Amino acid sequence: MKNNVKKAIAGIAIVSSACAVFAAAKFSARKSISVLSREDGSGTRSAFVELFGIEKKVAGGIKVDYTTDEAAITNSTAVMMANVACDRYAIGYISLGSLNNSVKAVKIDGADACVSNIDNGSYKISRPFNIVVRDGISDAARDFVSFISSREGQSVIAANNYIKVPSTKAFVSNNASGKVVVAGSSSVSPVMEKLVEAYRSHNENVRIELQTSDSTTGIANAMSGTCDIGMASRSLKQTERAGGVYEIAIAVDGIAVIVNKENPVGNLSREQVEKIFTGEYTKWSSVSR
């Protein structure tokens, strides 16, 4: 099993020194690929390894994540982007909705990573954004959930480069008051911040606390009641459903495979991505021909 990594990146401390080193040289395809992945528990990692065939079933139907042991582990979307931006030999993956001009998203099988291509089916690397709740949540939590699923909430989703879920219902607040804790996925968190901001104009009496971690933690916290609403960038497992929670789809998001802006590689096949992240390809020359 190859998900026991040898290196871990917990912050952005290495970025400044890395930038200084790489600024002095030009890109060379003979150099080693710096593979960056996400931590165990990340919904983005779970979806990524499944969609690219990096996770495989072995005897007994057990799923094994074959991410190379040489992958450096980043603990958030922001850290992933920061390190790819400063390492011209790095490759990683992030939520498409979080993509900015500090890094470059490569085409996958010739299709650009964009909302329109997810919508038309040509870019196939996508996954759901879900919120996770228990029965019997507070009136304040129900009001915010209703807003997210409403026409107004879904307009926020669409405005932030995600594919909205169908909704024709206008939001009508129940005028609840109180505190709502929303916790989980760092991929869902950026658009959740936008939703929280938009919701305030509809109900100022609810205070929403946003806690960012990962999908598994968000789901576990929803199950235990530590938070009112969990954020997950993957579907629930059967064992989690058995814990008394259910999911509500709030958006569809793509996963962008990202490289440094100075990297001339602009298109990769799904097979090439798999071989990079399982360690079969270790030099950029393997995909630069």
Results as ranks from 00 to 15, higher is better:
147 F>R: 00
131 I>Y: 07
198 A>L: 00
142 R>L: 08
246 Y>N: 07
54 I>W: 08
92 G>N: 04
107 K>D: 10
90 A>S: 15
10 A>R: 07
188 V>D: 06
53 G>N: 11
85 A>S: 15
220 A>W: 04
218 G>E: 02
58 V>A: 07
86 C>W: 09
255 I>S: 11
73 I>T: 03
4 N>T: 13
68 T>P: 04
261 K>T: 13
138 S>L: 13
83 N>V: 09
201 S>M: 04
249 A>N: 14
206 V>G: 00
1 M>I: 14
202 H>R: 00
267 N>I: 04
288 S>G: 04
70 E>H: 14
180 V>A: 13
32 S>G: 08
145 V>E: 01
11 G>N: 12
273 V>L: 05
185 S>I: 11
207 R>Q: 11
240 E>W: 15
9 I>Q: 08
176 A>Y: 03
185 S>P: 08
237 K>R: 15
257 V>R: 09
23 A>L: 13
228 D>V: 05
67 T>W: 11
132 V>Q: 06
115 V>P: 02
246 Y>M: 14
221 N>Y: 09
4 N>P: 05
180 V>D: 06
63 K>V: 12
209 E>R: 11
57 K>S: 10
111 A>H: 08
275 K>F: 07
124 K>H: 06
221 N>T: 07
178 G>A: 13
247 E>Q: 15
208 I>T: 01
227 C>D: 06
86 C>K: 06
87 D>I: 08
233 S>Q: 12
177 S>P: 06
282 T>D: 01
86 C>N: 12
20 A>V: 11
86 C>L: 06
277 F>N: 02
185 S>M: 03
216 T>N: 11
200 R>N: 01
150 S>W: 01
139 D>H: 05
57 K>W: 07
100 N>D: 15
200 R>P: 00
107 K>A: 07
222 A>M: 09
33 I>G: 03
53 G>F: 14
274 E>C: 14
82 A>G: 05
272 Q>T: 03
289 R>S: 13
245 V>A: 12
207 R>G: 02
50 E>N: 11
46 S>A: 15
96 L>I: 03
155 S>Q: 06
187 S>W: 06
214 D>R: 03
189 S>R: 01
220 A>F: 09
258 I>T: 14
277 F>W: 03
